[in-house]
Design a binder for these strands. Structure first.
Lengths: 423, 423
DNA sequence: ACAGTTTCCCGTAAATGC
DNA sequence: TGCATTTACGGGAAACTG
């Protein structure tokens, strides 16, 4: 059951990193009368400085002029394809950096302008357009913040260039935001978020409520303020998971084997009455970019017991892919290794049926050595009981894992005379 | 027993990477009569192009002029400290790149010139000096080749600037080279190579001989030709081990717990009559940058059996430090996990005594999760005998691990009027 | 002192040149 | 085509800077 998840217009990076090449293509959408000379287009960064002083100024380090040419593929439009453009910061020596410390760099919006001039029957005509707002960063560590800005802007305004948007950013309704979040996952992984997953995220932001539809999130709560008791914001947490999926969990995520966003309470309610050894996969809420599994066992008196492993993060996962961790995971009690406690992926899929095709054999046969592999293992002492948090209250409903509703949201592209892409 | 290993003159990097900053300091060794104006020094890359055409041309991208000043610390010498210098390749459009494909980039030697001019009593005086030969690389993957060139040059010539050195590089005697190799290890790790280790390296180059003292190695055999049957040269192999030590084995190497350079034959001779579970650590000869352990067991009929694990390379070691691998290594036979087969580091040091202080506890207690660790494990099927190569012939002598002789070799520094350093 | 931001540069991958 | 070399840039860490 593959989820319908095809963007109508894939979201282009609207984030540019200084010192890293980018390219942009401009198409003239109106047909010009015959112009017998070559039409030159020029691109400028932040040509018209926005009203409020900006924090930083950049310039295009590389050649920013190019002759337009006729593109075969789009019925002879005039186009120009700028390549190998590169941004560098203009160091302002004396000028006081404005902006009064209100905005962070990823809230600062910039724009790329395109200009051309030609004469027709003695009349000089200027053509000009410019891009949607751009975020400029200097290190990939700023990408999550940049994405948050791009999302918020796209979600909450149709204005083509409101450079002061983050001066007083509007709130988003949970309806809007949850759709956008699902869309982010869809775009970057191939699978979005289902109703239950979104519900858990809503609870994270607003607490338990019958419906989050009427809730509103401020920009600050979304991205700038830390989650209560955690050293990171909601978006930083969510984005760390997106990255983890992209790099280490893609096929398993796309096969829908990661429930992921599920509260510990719901997790217990789901596993409570299942076969011993039934487990599910859940993203860590306490640490950035972590995934854990929780399985259910039964005491001698028939009481359900839930055990979660310390979350695996990118470092661990690059040593050993997650499917292999699930395959080979062992618990050692008093020095004895019983079999893998993980038997059935919730609700009742035999482990190997779910993950079998993602196992890496990784047994290299290098004569005359004996092969060696890393086995993920937890060590317990039966004298010490497993520390397990007290039974939490029940939650409203069970997961309906099959019912997933996702609608891609449209990204507005501003073009008057020109049409442009930025890659 | 700490090995004496103090370089009298630490070897400075004489390798410059394009696009990466370097700095150089020049000291005027003669006292000038009073000069009442500021003395400006200029540095130029490859000022006088060598006779034979060079493959590549570079220039100093950054400011290459600086005023000299009096250095307090060295009794008022005039010095200049160039910083943030950066090299860029000059792209030669039309000119045929000379050099006829004879030399690789790391065999191409360059030089940094320093010039100053002043007038005294109406006489104009030019001061000029230049650096020892430099190797220019564009990627760190070329560093091993660069180091080989620097070593060979330093080892075999006292000429201050023989730019054509690698046009017909002289051979090195094993006496010279082995000393240089030990010195490389000493400089970069803190521990050099003992007699037995060097002997093994000599055998690798020359085959088994009573003495290698009279053997000669060509530059090509050292660094350019692949070892018979292997896809890498002698130096590339040795350097990969040097890197492995630097990044993953430093404390264990410096504690002298890694025999490392030992043939499989010698290994067996050493372990043959030792307690079962005695093991030693050896670098892989078949793969770049790998380390393995071999331990001895005894058959029911008392015959010694040697088992080696598939070598660990940097990827594995960054998932799990080598000391922890040794600590936790397990062999699973028919699904049963017996205890760690590694008991005594050759000759008879209890494992934990040798490696105990390098163990990482790595048991993180994160409530409410149960901790998990990676356990290195080999899986065997008792129905299949361990594949073990046939008993090799005995080797001349046992290791004398205590007798280590290392003498640092001196690096010549050319200075006539000036003295310079390159960092 | 410190947090936000940029710079630096290794190391891998991809592109380029020969 | 294959090999040698350079370029590109993510990612961690150090340096910078108000």
């Amino acid at each position: 059951e593959k989820q319908p998840c095809m963007p109508t217009h894939p979201q282009k990076p609207l984030i540019i990193k200084t010192g890293v090449q980018f390219s942009t293509k401009v198409r003239l959408l109106v047909k010009l009368p015959e112009v017998d000379y070559q039409l030159k287009m020029k691109t400028t960064f932040d040509k018209d400085l926005p009203a409020g002083r900006v924090n930083r100024q950049f310039f295009i380090l590389t050649n920013n002029m190019k002759v337009m040419d006729f593109e075969e593929s789009s019925n002879g439009c005039l186009t120009v394809d700028f390549r190998h453009l590169q941004l560098k910061e203009k160091k302002v020596i004396n000028g006081t950096k404005g902006n009064e410390g209100l905005l962070s760099v990823t809230e600062e919006l910039h724009t790329l302008s395109f200009e051309a001039n030609f004469s027709i029957q003695g009349i000089s005509i200027d053509l000009e357009t410019c891009s949607l707002p751009l975020v400029v960063i200097s290190n990939v560590s700023q990408l999550p913040g940049g994405w948050a800005s791009v999302m918020w802007y796209n979600l909450l305004t149709n204005e083509p260039r409101n450079m002061g948007f983050f001066g007083s950013p509007p709130r988003a309704s949970w309806n809007q935001l949850s759709e956008a979040l699902g869309w982010q996952f869809c775009t970057f992984t191939g699978r979005g978020l289902n109703k239950e997953q979104l519900n858990m995220l809503g609870e994270k932001l607003f607490g338990q409520q019958v419906s989050h539809s009427d809730c509103q999130v401020s920009w600050s709560k979304f991205c700038k303020e830390n989650i209560l008791g955690k050293p990171f914001s909601f978006w930083m947490w969510l984005d760390s998971i997106l990255e983890l999926i992209k790099k280490h969990l893609l096929p398993i995520w796309n096969d829908n084997y990661i429930m992921g966003f599920v509260s510990k309470e719901t997790e217990r309610a789901l596993l409570k009455d299942k076969e011993p050894g039934t487990f599910l996969l859940r993203f860590s809420e306490s640490h950035l970019g972590g995934i854990t599994f929780t399985w259910v066992e039964h005491n001698d008196n028939g009481e359900a017991k839930f055990i979660s492993v310390e979350p695996y993060t990118k470092n661990r996962l690059s040593a050993l892919p997650f499917a292999d961790i699930i395959r080979n995971y062992k618990v050692m009690v008093d020095g004895v290794v019983p079999e893998n406690p993980l038997k059935f992926l919730y609700p009742d899929i035999p482990k190997d049926e779910a993950f079998g095709r993602h196992y890496n054999s990784q047994q290299s046969k290098v004569f005359p050595y004996i092969p060696s592999m890393l086995v993920p293992m937890s060590t317990l002492d039966s004298a010490l009981p497993i520390c397990s948090s007290p039974e939490p209250p029940m939650t409203p409903g069970m997961f309906d894992m099959l019912n997933q509703q996702l609608r891609p949201f449209e990204i507005e592209t501003a073009h008057i005379v020109f049409d442009y892409d930025i890659n």
